[in-house]
Computed example of a mutant assay.
Amino acid sequence: MKNKSSSVNSMKFKKAIAASLAILILLAFTGCGTSSNSAATESPKQEDTSTSAATESPKQEDTSTTSSSSSVESNEKLNNLYQQENQIFADHKNAWDKAFGFMSKNTGDDTMNENYADFLANTIESNKDSFSEEEYNTLSKDIETIRGIEEEITKLEKEIAASDSSSSSSSDSAESTGVFHGFKGKDLDGNDVDESLFAQNKVTVVNFWFSGCKPCVEELSKLNELNDKIKEMGGEVVGINTDTLDDNQDGIKEAKEILKAQGASYKNLTFNSDSTVGKYAGNIMAFPTTVLVDKDGNIIGEPFMGGINDQSNYEQLMKQIQSILDQE
């Protein structure tokens, strides 16, 4: 096995349910990934789309330590819940593998806005005749257990988002705005890309995702529609799949397959994880995350968390894009 850089390892730990280690890094955002880099679109949901904000603490000097400790504890609880959820899928693997096969065929707009337990339940119900009575009863029971776990996950995700939002300082924000300065990388076909990519656009929408992130995959087709729309306005959508960094060929192959399956043809990039933007990507723990970048490679405004296949999220992002275009 090839040795990876520390930033790659920390990114994998976040996705491998080890946030208690990853939280020791100064984080700009919070959330969690998936249990395996090789997980495909059928992987259990382990993403954060919360955008809750927290109030500022009057004791600024003590906030960092307290927040870090609280985040470690919350992430440990969150990861335990993820492990419980994953164990359910593992315990009844054959039945769930069959269910996941139907899910790939039922990812329309109506299902994308459901919570995860409802999504699972509706998939099972709509394909009830395809399961034996034993399989159906097993899956139904599992879904009710998952529903309870998801409620706890949602609560903890909001607490983590609020905690890390309050602990992020203005200096952290200022340092992160120029992460695309001097950018160098490649697209997934191996073609060189640099910061001129941003210079030629009035605004560039950069979407961070990974292959095992269900909400990330679900919004890819919508991002492709957005790309077609804003290209007429002088903008462009660019994807960054964190599984592809450091020219990870397995990750690149999987990402390209997913993009093709979702009808997403816009540019996706890979680069070194020890670069400035690589370190920025390594600190993202809430996926999907989308940022707006100006001609000079500066991130404008706050990162946008959550899938834009949700209409309200899409409209909010479009307002931010339009406000930048209006300034041109």
Results as ranks from 00 to 15, higher is better:
99 A>G: 03
88 I>T: 10
114 E>G: 00
70 S>I: 10
93 K>T: 09
106 N>T: 04
92 H>C: 03
103 M>F: 08
107 T>P: 02
93 K>D: 02
116 Y>N: 01
85 E>V: 00
85 E>D: 03
114 E>D: 12
104 S>K: 10
73 E>H: 15
95 A>I: 10
82 Y>S: 04
106 N>A: 10
95 A>F: 08
74 S>I: 07
86 N>Q: 04
100 F>C: 02
87 Q>W: 04
77 K>I: 09
114 E>I: 00
82 Y>A: 08
81 L>Y: 07
82 Y>R: 09
103 M>W: 08
106 N>G: 08
73 E>C: 12
78 L>C: 03
99 A>Y: 02
111 T>G: 11
116 Y>F: 05
89 F>M: 00
97 D>H: 14
91 D>Y: 01
84 Q>P: 02
86 N>V: 01
80 N>P: 01
79 N>A: 08
90 A>H: 08
105 K>R: 15
91 D>R: 02
78 L>T: 08
82 Y>E: 08
86 N>K: 01
96 W>M: 05
78 L>R: 04
103 M>I: 03
112 M>L: 13
73 E>N: 15
86 N>A: 07
99 A>W: 05
110 D>Q: 08
89 F>K: 00
90 A>K: 11
88 I>C: 10
93 K>W: 03
83 Q>R: 07
96 W>G: 01
97 D>G: 14
105 K>G: 13
90 A>G: 01
79 N>F: 10
83 Q>G: 04
84 Q>S: 13
109 D>N: 07
73 E>R: 15
80 N>R: 06
117 A>G: 03
106 N>S: 12
110 D>C: 05
115 N>F: 10
94 N>R: 09
74 S>P: 01
87 Q>T: 09
105 K>D: 15
98 K>T: 12
74 S>N: 13
102 F>K: 09
74 S>M: 06
104 S>D: 06
109 D>L: 11
88 I>P: 03
118 D>N: 04
109 D>M: 09
74 S>V: 05
106 N>R: 11
82 Y>K: 04
75 N>M: 15
102 F>G: 01
105 K>Q: 15
84 Q>A: 09
80 N>L: 05
105 K>S: 15
116 Y>M: 00
108 G>F: 08
77 K>F: 11
89 F>H: 07
113 N>Y: 06
117 A>Q: 06
72 V>S: 12
88 I>S: 05
72 V>D: 09
88 I>N: 12
114 E>F: 05
107 T>G: 06
99 A>L: 14
97 D>Y: 13
91 D>H: 00
107 T>Q: 13
116 Y>V: 00
113 N>Q: 14
78 L>G: 02
111 T>A: 13
84 Q>L: 07
83 Q>V: 03
87 Q>G: 06
78 L>V: 03
91 D>C: 02
115 N>M: 02
71 S>Q: 15
113 N>M: 12
81 L>K: 04
110 D>F: 09
85 E>N: 02
85 E>L: 00
92 H>Q: 04
89 F>D: 01
93 K>Y: 08
74 S>D: 08
113 N>P: 00
117 A>E: 05
71 S>A: 15
115 N>H: 14
95 A>D: 11
71 S>W: 09
106 N>D: 06
100 F>I: 09
98 K>S: 08
80 N>D: 01
111 T>R: 15
78 L>Q: 01
